[in-house]
Amino acid sequence: MEIRNKVAVITGGASGMGRQIAELLVAQGAKVAIFDLNDAAGTALEASLGESLMFAKVDVTDEASVQAGVDKTIARFSAIHICVNCAGIATGSKTVGRDGAFPLELWNKTIAINLTGTFNVLRLCAVEMVKNEPVNDDGARGVIINTASIAAYEGQIGQAAYSASKGGIVGMTLPIARDLAPKGIRVNTIVPGLVDTPMFESLPKEVYEGLSKTVLFPQRLARPAEIAELARFIIESDYLNGECIRMDGGVRMQPK
């Protein structure tokens, strides 16, 4: 699918990978709606990118909130062709730790934001994609890109909830691609490794360098811009569907 003149919804679009993808798509001629809870960052990005980008304060776990964001996008840009789900949280707790059992509240929150939130947004965006006229000879109407993590495959100690949430995203990729194939909508998942986001930048230098050395090659963390380029490749590659693509420098996570 050609990016120019298309409309994209990006969750978690006010920072990190989501912001990089938003900026890249705007640069390629798309209109972008970012769904995020960070008012300050979202408003600042909206101001910096002008008429091509709008910010909607959206809680991905809340159906009414997401629907309001979708409605706002349609009112502003008239369609949705691309949905990129980057919103998520990283959590950690052992199944049984010093304070007892894994807090069920933390489990539920992790699953709600990372997994249910992803599905909540993509299903409502897909409703709008179905309304689109085909944009190419294949009958394409939309592209959905979800974001998982290599923790889906190699979860570390304390990552039961996080790994389950990301594993769920991997697991639902093909069934949703099959569901939406008759509608002309492709579904793929990016599976990042260690990405140089603000979360990692706050780590002590020795920890940051230690993580970099675990990567096979190149021995560094991924740049958010590299994830954005993969998102662009997926959007533009009409025959790529139902896939989960690792982008991790060859790293395989150890237990801890």
Score class of each variant (00 low, 15 high):
75 A>F: 06
191 V>I: 13
50 G>Q: 01
8 A>H: 04
183 K>S: 15
242 G>W: 01
94 K>Q: 13
99 D>F: 06
21 I>A: 12
90 A>V: 03
18 G>F: 01
7 V>T: 08
184 G>A: 12
12 G>T: 07
11 T>F: 01
191 V>H: 11
119 F>M: 14
221 L>R: 10
173 T>E: 04
68 A>S: 13
199 M>Y: 12
62 D>L: 02
179 D>S: 10
93 S>M: 06
123 R>I: 03
174 L>N: 03
13 G>S: 10
213 K>W: 14
167 G>A: 15
148 A>T: 04
210 G>D: 04
60 V>P: 07
97 G>N: 04
159 Q>T: 06
169 I>V: 13
185 I>Y: 06
11 T>Q: 01
91 T>G: 00
20 Q>A: 15
246 R>N: 12
138 D>M: 08
237 S>F: 07
241 N>D: 03
29 G>L: 04
153 Y>L: 14
219 Q>W: 11
30 A>W: 04
48 S>D: 11
230 L>F: 02
194 L>T: 07
99 D>E: 05
44 A>G: 08
203 L>P: 01
62 D>S: 11
197 T>C: 11
221 L>A: 13
126 A>N: 06
98 R>E: 11
181 A>M: 10
239 Y>P: 03
170 V>N: 15
101 A>I: 03
168 G>N: 11
234 I>A: 01
2 E>W: 01
163 S>K: 12
19 R>G: 09
